[in-house]
Design a protein around this nucleic acid. Structure first.
Lengths: 215, 215
DNA sequence: ATAATAGATTAGATTAATCTAACAATAGAA
DNA sequence: TTCTATTGTTAGATTAATCTAATCTATTAT
């Protein structure tokens, strides 16, 4: 049996290790708002349960079993966020903290029904992939806008930052998911991009281009 | 701060004390599937927090504060049950255990939205009253069918037992909420009733008539 | 190369929620 | 009224999840 708290650790490790494949203890503890010894002793527990690999003074890695468990929690989280947003009309700014709680509900039926009502979505409204029922996270084949070259045309499909401010910024520029964006030029000094879309031209800072995911 | 477990105790005390106004420790512990000493020490905690009145060897009573808190938990429970049933199409047999978990979600917004989507219902689909946002339980003015006399005509508005078997039984007899029932006669020996409704006549045992609430 | 700093671990304490075993009180029956 | 069975309480232990204080390891800068 995995406790609610253990679930939170697993999900956080998964999200934090998406890039590098592992997480140092202090990063995990910071993210979860607990002190390092707390995270440390929890890692021993999760290692006993064969959910993580953990050796003294080395960073944390999920085992296959741990990865699957974590993906299923992430699935419930994103499914719930999508449901709260699309079927209950709650604002994005509220959706996350409620989903953090609902993701721990023990009921396959409940989440299956959500899935059904949402027509088995593959991504959440932010474009983040929803892991499958088997606990597999399909690679979203998305890259950062800032990773592309001059002359390329890409499709804006997701964001990296769900803060209200950022979403408002995108709204102001009329940058919607699905918009085709052409990179006209890149400023070598600060990495800012001149882009065109919908018959308009804008300059986006590197900070912004880092947060925009495209295909 | 009231913990999740404390919430479960409060809600259970409220439900169990609906009739008599108080609950003995052993009844509470049985209902919650914990041993008596566990319930006992929890009562000390709740008494410290001024949520219950509790003196050694005397039964438990809720304080006003405790009653309000408990009613708000019951509100969330019944609102959730109604939502799962009416808006998500889940069966009654599944709805209770999921609502037991969701009732503890910390988010006024979430429950307000449910309330709104359900058009501010006053009772759940079983006819049980949903306490108000202020934590007031409006008396439902319902009585047991078995408390009525020969010749009376009453409206069947709620049940006392949500078991699948009982609901199936009612279904078989075509006894739906809202049905007008006339009591033709009462058998003095075993208390069974001869009733008529929808142009048919049936005999209901006392056991059944105890579980049917009417106005 | 060594000292300073950042990061990780150990030891020991705390609180919530539970248990078992042993003891105490109350109420109903003889 | 006294005994016995039911109900309630105390004491002490356990597990999960957290903390602080002290210590250890590793990396980085001089």
């Amino acid at each position: 049996m995995i406790t609610l708290t253990e679930e939170n650790y697993l999900k956080t490790i998964l999200v934090l290790s998406m890039e590098k494949g592992y997480v140092p203890v202090h990063v995990l503890s910071q993210e979860l708002n607990v002190k390092m010894p707390t995270a440390n002793s929890m890692m021993k527990r999760l290692a006993d349960k064969e959910l993580v690999y953990f050796e003294p003074y080395k960073p944390i890695r999920l085992t296959e079993k741990g990865k699957t468990e974590a993906a299923l929690i992430l699935r419930r989280h994103r499914l719930t966020e999508t449901f709260l947003f699309e079927r209950m009309g709650l604002g994005w700014e509220h959706v996350h903290s409620i989903a953090e709680q609902i993701e721990h509900i023990q009921s396959g039926l409940f989440f299956d029904r959500m899935d059904e009502m949402l027509n088995f979505p593959e991504t959440d409204p932010h474009g983040e992939p929803i892991p499958t029922k088997e606990g597999v996270i399909l690679p979203s084949s998305r890259t950062r806008l800032s990773n592309h070259k001059e002359g390329e045309t890409v499709c804006f499909t997701a964001v990296n930052d769900s803060s209200e401010e950022f979403l408002r910024f995108l709204n102001n520029k009329n940058l919607k998911l699905g918009t085709a964006i052409k990179i006209e030029s890149i400023e070598p000094y600060d990495g800012s991009l001149t882009v065109s879309y919908d018959d308009r031209q804008e300059i986006l800072s590197k900070m912004v281009a880092d947060k925009m995911l495209v295909t």
